[in-house]
Nucleic acid binder design. Structure first.
Length: 944
RNA sequence: GCCCUGGUGGUGGAAUCGGUAGACACGCAGGACUUAAAAUCCUGUGACCAUUGCGGUCGUGCGGGUUCAAGUCCCGCCCGGGGUACCA
């Protein structure tokens, strides 16, 4: 039979469904393998050919591992909370749950057509209450936890309370905001009096007695400073257009990642996750996992560890100090001024009367600029003198204090000690403001630029003179410590993650408020399900949409009206697949112990600073609390590249409805317009179809080139509806079949690489499957497979192919497997090989890539069971080597001819044979060989 | 700027440990079959020179180096892609 892929694929997809072929259980003594794709957000647009790239690769690998005897967990689900469904709801009033349901149905239909081996009984949806019940449970679990910096481990909040009971906060290092105690002092009780009995100069220490004398409210606020998820007033990224806050990783280039709307800084009371506590753990963990180096590097940069010191500069005219963070304490003798961020709390306190106007004006200006503006501004170092001075801790000299917006309030202490000789920004600022530069580096006059090398010996630096590098660093810190004006300090760039969103379509918080204090709703009462609302917009007074529901806990208490961010549900979904229907826990201990870490995670690199960091954080916390048996979720990860679209363009002559072929467009003034790629073939436009495509082109006229063709221009760019360059898998499956699509997507190149989508080569891959089919049966339907013993050549082809395919899959080289199978099929076709012994193994090798065709052929070979149960063939060594090896003979590195010799001949005999060869004398040109190199089964090189 | 990647024919790519560069496929050219087209099959296809045949020279972004041998290792550049930034 000719290759009737449409029939075959339908038939086997039905078979798999009926027989539950891909069901997975834990009740087996097989070794496990967990391979996971990043689950999709089910968007209304459906899948384009780029989406399944990673899914196909992981599906192939999952099938391969099954053939090898592993028990493979290869699940799929949906990250189904999200903005688009909500925005659609705002426009149309349709409940996001319905939109989501429809989109999922469409996704499922598309996924099924590609022939994946998912166990759909394990499907998860982040928006289903059975799932988000556990997202809520994790939230409360993290709320009931603190982080012990000494042990670097999460602990239950009770152990912290125990500490406080016994010793106050002495001898305990709990992760918290550095200014935690200051924020407590701002709190007032019902009568407007300070809530706490500590004075304004309280340094944060409290005793067991202090703790014991605190009331419930005081303890609540104090503990909130240490919980791993906490409610606090914090500066957040507010996106007015979206009406919600955004996490740092949801902002790209200063605008929202979704929609590209402006983002401003705003102070709001929000839930946050104390991910900053895990900075060091997240950093160290990277060494334990097998991820692409660039992703690790992105995470390292995002965590942004810098080792340095803090130093305290006493104020000259006032009591108090300015704390600065520096990575170069060794340059401290080069300090010629300090710079504060305009938002620094001391600014108004220290500014002198005659500088007041200038400073206030500058602060106001800076406040108007958002972070993006500050970046875009020229590199000019703006700033203003405050009129105040500080005392250099080591020299005792006065240094002026400036403010400048090149200092960021959110990093370090919001204040820097400026060393113009050693820091380029400080140098620029000093030049701009005519501040004298203290020279502290040997042979460096600072007239051109700062000297940023750490290895230049210091001068003018008192006891540091002559030192450099680590020695100078340590010596400077030591002397600061001695006078209690500084200490070693490690700083991280990683900020806590804001966890509240002012949206409807997300997980509701299991939280209500009693006397203004947040209370967790008990585990037994979960899930807290989303209430219905009349509109999906914020209320008139700016509360989140959930406030419209008038939602109350026990009819009495105000609920939390924010919802959780998109990353909440995706931070633990890999755990739920292990035991998706469990009603008692996120997943059973047994299931988690059995499946363990994800062995291979496929997905896009764009989640490096979001999902991939948050999932690690949650897994670590849950591991510390002994809910999860491992601390890193994803052992190995491969990032598939993006498949780009190839857009086609037509050129309309200005102010007409006449279109000119791309090769002639230079002669006219034209406007470039997109043309749908479905009416363009090989850059040639189907002009009739174009007229029918959009009403406005109905009367279009064309200027064709000499060949009578209308040629389109093209560009490679992201696939999107508005560019009319979206290629859906459905069309290709219709035309060539899912097996061809699967093979072709792999054949395109290494999965990690980004590449433009191009259907040009798909015929070649389709022909390969047809040729393969023809080894089994003629196009007329005559079955060709015989029981005869195959000849040696066919067996050699087979075993070499087994070896190469196996090796290639093991090193995740999906693309070369297709080539290898093509070569094998070409060879067998030439050999006229139709022996069952050979072809049966071929079917198994083929089955990960083209499962439908493989099932069909396997069945026709007489098997009742699915081919997925077949064992992976093993290569027999005897067939891998030829008896004869064709040695390339080179002279001075240039290959001249080949000589066939016994493959097992030793080097000395090979040399003898070569020297005796007639051509050797010719290439020696009478010279004597200086050296003859023989590498057995590789090469012969004669040096002369 | 810094960090991470990558750069191979007309195109996608292969070359896994330093050992015949360009596998496999597309495209293109020529041919067979056909009224014709599609499909299928055959031949050729890195560039240049030579061509009756044998062959020769160059060639993996550029310039050096190590080596009997370099796409692969080392040094210095150039260009593309991604990340990140007044981060003190």
């Amino acid at each position: 039979m000719s290759y009737t892929f449409q029939e075959i694929e339908k038939k086997w997809q039905a078979f798999w469904k009926e027989h539950n072929t891909y069901r997975v259980t834990e009740t087996t003594d097989k070794k496990k393998y967990y391979i996971l794709d990043m689950f999709p957000y089910p968007s209304g647009a459906g899948l384009h050919v780029g989406h399944p790239l990673g899914y196909i690769a992981s599906d192939i690998f999952a099938r391969y591992k099954k053939h090898q005897g592993f028990n493979v967990l290869h699940p799929m689900g949906y990250d189904s909370f999200g903005l688009p469904a909500e925005q659609y709801a705002i426009q149309t009033g349709q409940h996001p749950a319905i939109t989501t349901e429809n989109n999922i149905a469409r996704y499922r239909e598309q996924l099924d057509k590609i022939g994946f081996c998912y166990d759909w009984e394990r499907e998860v949806r982040t928006s289903s209450p059975e799932y988000y019940q556990w997202t809520q449970w994790i939230f409360t679990t993290i709320y009931r936890a603190w982080f012990n910096l000494e042990t670097q481990k999460t602990e239950h909040i009770d152990t912290l309370i125990q500490h406080f009971e016994n010793n106050g906060n002495f001898n305990v290092q709990a992760a918290c905001d550095e200014k935690w105690h200051q924020s407590l002092l701002e709190l007032k009780d019902n009568e407007g009096q300070p809530l706490y009995f500590f004075g304004t100069d309280w340094n944060g220490d409290f005793t067991a007695t202090d703790w014991q004398s605190m009331n419930e409210e005081q303890r609540y606020h104090l503990l909130m400073c240490f919980r791993l998820t906490y409610l606090a007033d914090s500066m957040v990224n507010w996106c007015p257009a979206l009406g919600t806050v955004l996490a740092n990783d949801e902002i790209k280039d200063g605008v929202s990642e979704r929609g590209g709307h402006p983002v401003v800084q705003k102070k709001m009371r929000q839930w946050s996750m104390r991910i900053s506590a895990f900075s060091e753990r997240l950093l160290l963990g990277l060494d334990q996992i097998d991820w692409p180096e660039n992703i690790k590097e992105i995470q390292r940069n995002w965590i942004g560890k810098s080792e340095g010191a803090t130093a305290f500069f006493d104020l000259s005219q006032h009591p108090g100090q300015i704390e600065v963070f520096t990575t170069r304490p060794d340059t401290i003798f080069g300090v010629s001024y300090l710079t504060l961020a305009p938002e620094h709390p001391l600014v108004s306190y220290i500014t002198t009367a005659d500088q007041k106007d200038a400073v206030e004006q500058y602060v106001q200006q800076a406040a108007l600029k958002n972070e993006r503006d500050r970046q875009v501004q020229s590199k000019e170092m703006t700033g203003v003198f405050t009129g105040a001075f500080a005392i250099h801790p080591l020299t005792g000299k006065e240094v002026p204090i400036y403010i400048g917006d090149y200092v960021l309030a959110g990093y370090g202490t919001g204040a820097v000690m400026a060393v113009p000789a050693g820091d380029q920004r400080d140098w620029d600022f000093a030049k701009h403001h005519n501040i004298p530069i203290v020279l502290i580096f040997e042979n460096h006059d600072a007239s051109e630029s700062a000297c940023t090398s750490k290895e230049v010996p210091l001068v003018n630096s008192d006891f540091l003179n002559g030192l450099c590098g680590k020695a100078a660093f340590n010596s400077a810190v030591e002397s600061l410590e001695k006078i209690e004006h500084g200490n070693k300090k490690v700083n991280y760039r990683l900020r806590d993650a804001v966890f509240s969103r002012q949206r409807y379509w997300g997980e509701p918080f299991p939280v209500y408020f009693k006397d203004g204090k947040a209370q967790m709703i008990g585990d037994q009462e979960l899930p807290v399900t989303l209430p219905d609302v009349d509109k999906y917009l914020p209320t008139e007074d700016g509360e989140p949409p959930l406030a419209r529901s008038q939602w109350k806990y026990q009819n009495d208490f105000v609920m939390e009206y924010n919802t959780m961010p998109g990353w909440a549900g995706s931070s633990w979904y890999f755990l739920r697949y292990m035991d998706p229907k469990n009603t008692q826990a996120i997943a059973s201990k047994e299931a988690m112990n059995y499946w363990g870490q994800v062995d291979l995670y496929m997905g896009g690199a764009e989640h490096a600073t979001g999902h991939l960091l948050y999932s690690r954080f949650w897994t670590m916390t849950l591991h510390d609390l002994e809910y999860v048996p491992f601390g890193e979720p994803f052992q190995k990860m491969i990032n598939q590249g993006m498949i780009l679209g190839r857009s086609s363009f037509v050129y309309r002559i200005k102010d007409t409805n006449t279109f000119v072929s791309a090769d002639l467009r230079k002669e006219y003034t034209t406007q470039r317009l997109y043309a749908d790629i479905s009416i363009v073939d090989n850059d040639q436009l189907d002009t009739e179809a174009f007229k029918k495509w959009l009403p406005e082109y109905h009367n279009a006229e064309f200027i064709l080139n000499e060949k009578g063709q209308y040629l389109c221009g093209f560009e490679v760019e992201k696939m999107s509806k508005s560019k009319y360059n979206v290629q859906t898998p459905d069309e290709l499956i219709e035309k060539f079949g899912a097996d061809t699509l699967r093979c072709y997507e792999m054949f395109l190149g290494p999965v990690e690489q980004s590449k433009p989508w191009d259907t040009k080569g798909i015929n070649g891959v389709h022909n390969f499957l047809r040729r393969l089919n023809r080894l089994f049966q003629t196009d007329e339907g005559q079955w060709m497979v015989t029981q005869d013993a195959p000849n040696k050549k066919s067996l050699q082809t087979l075993h070499r192919t087994i070896k190469k395919v196996t090796d290639d899959l093991n090193r995740h080289s999906w693309n070369t497997v297709v080539s290898t199978l093509m070569i094998a099929v070409n060879e067998w076709t030439e050999q006229k090989c139709h022996q069952k012994e050979v072809l049966e193994s071929l079917v198994v090798l083929l089955s990960p890539y083209a499962p439908h065709l493989a099932e069909e052929l396997w069945n026709k070979l007489g098997h009742q069971d699915s081919v997925t149960l077949a064992h992976w063939p093993e290569a027999i060594a005897a067939y891998l080597e030829d008896d004869v090896f064709s040695y390339p003979v080179s002279f001075n590195g240039k290959t001249r001819f080949n000589i066939d010799l016994d493959a097992n001949m030793d080097a000395a005999s090979v040399e003898k044979e070569v020297m005796a060869h007639e051509k050797t004398a010719h290439y020696l040109e009478g010279k004597a060989p200086k050296k003859v190199i023989v590498v057995p089964k590789r090469i012969i090189n004669i040096v002369c």
